[in-house]
Computed example of a mutant assay.
Amino acid sequence: MREDGHREEALGPDGLRSRNALRDDARFFTSGCMTGEERVDCLTATFRKHRYALHAHETFVIGAITSGCGTLWLQGTRHRASPGDLTLLNPEDVHDGTPHDDTGYSYRVTYPSASLVQRLAAEITGHEVQPHFRCRVIRDPAAATRLVAAHLALETYGWSLGTEEALLLAYACCLERHAERFRPEAPRGREQQRVSRVKSMLEDQATSSGVCLADLAGEVGVSRFHLIRMFRNEAGTTPHAYLVGRRIEAAKRRLRRGEAPIAVASATGFADQAHLTRVFKARVGVTPGAYRDGVSK
């Protein structure tokens, strides 16, 4: 293992990478209690074949590439991320993630809640702010090094005063350098109000199998086609994809409590465990069982 915590690629007698070296490798773990009872999920991964489906998170996504090159689509643009680059996503940023080429990429990423980031931003500025990252992929080797070091320490040693401090200081560095301190609320137009209403309905019915596009459209007074187009324009995704995202977040909460994937699948609106596993891995990068083992109490 290298000093940065990543596995060296094993070479065979002919100088070619071994079959094991070409496999994807991913592991979730938790930071422990950062503030009160709040935890931060963490992922370390090397992906050569895995391609994330379009998805979004309820949390911020703060990470750094450690080797190789990955790409992600967001806001209508395909971005490249290489060593020394930070990935700074806001809650509900719709994105994917793919290797740039067959050599793949490795990265370390954290998922702090919006409330944790807002509290930290308030501590930094001395008043309430709504932090927002304008540039989602940005080159900052110093901040990336700090984040990777904190992430590796958490993986190696677990939660402690020192590792909590290191992670919070890494977040503070990202916020101070790259977050907008204020983001005034723009007046909400009719389309935004309708989409907000549909989002609320989808969240309320996230685990129900009876969600109907016609009912959603009727509730806000538009056609089904107009709803899909309007929702995509405002939210960056379709109503169904948004619903799946809410189900994934509900599944994560249950898995963090240690529930079995088969029970989680039936409780969160998936057809069966195989359906949950397929959709979960496409958006999270690991299977539900691997996620539960990494972050459950």
Rank of each mutant, 00 (worst) to 15 (best):
R177K: 15
R181E: 07
D102P: 00
G245Q: 11
M34V: 15
T103Q: 14
R194Q: 15
P261W: 02
A265Y: 04
K252A: 04
P131Q: 09
T238Y: 01
S209D: 06
C33F: 14
E123D: 11
F47Y: 15
V295T: 00
P99N: 03
C212R: 15
T238A: 09
S296M: 09
V211M: 05
G236Q: 01
F280Y: 07
R254W: 04
G63L: 10
H6I: 01
P187Q: 06
G258N: 01
Y171P: 04
N233Q: 11
S115A: 08
T98L: 05
A142V: 03
R23V: 09
V286D: 06
Y107F: 14
G97T: 01
D14M: 09
E9M: 01
T77D: 04
D140K: 08
P91A: 05
L88A: 05
P187K: 12
G285N: 04
R2E: 13
F225I: 12
L169I: 07
H79N: 06
L161G: 15
T98W: 08
G189A: 12
S208T: 02
R254K: 15
E3I: 06
L202W: 14
A170Q: 09
P184S: 13
G12H: 06
E180S: 09
V264F: 04
K297P: 07
S82F: 08
P131Y: 14
A172I: 01
G97W: 00
V220D: 11
M201T: 07
R283I: 03
F60D: 02
V109F: 05
F231K: 08
G221Y: 08
H240K: 02
D272A: 10
K49S: 14
Q130R: 11
I65N: 02
L86H: 03
Y111D: 00
R183T: 15
R257L: 14
F231R: 02
K297E: 12
P112W: 10
R188K: 10
P187H: 11
Q192R: 13
E185G: 10
C135L: 09
G158C: 03
V109Q: 02
E180F: 05
L22S: 10
C212S: 14
R256G: 07
T46N: 10
G104W: 02
H100D: 12
H6F: 15
A144G: 05
A282T: 00
A122M: 05
L16C: 01
I62Y: 08
D14A: 10
H50G: 02
R247C: 00
G12C: 14
R177G: 00
H50V: 07
Y107S: 10
F225A: 13
G269R: 03
A166L: 12
H151K: 02
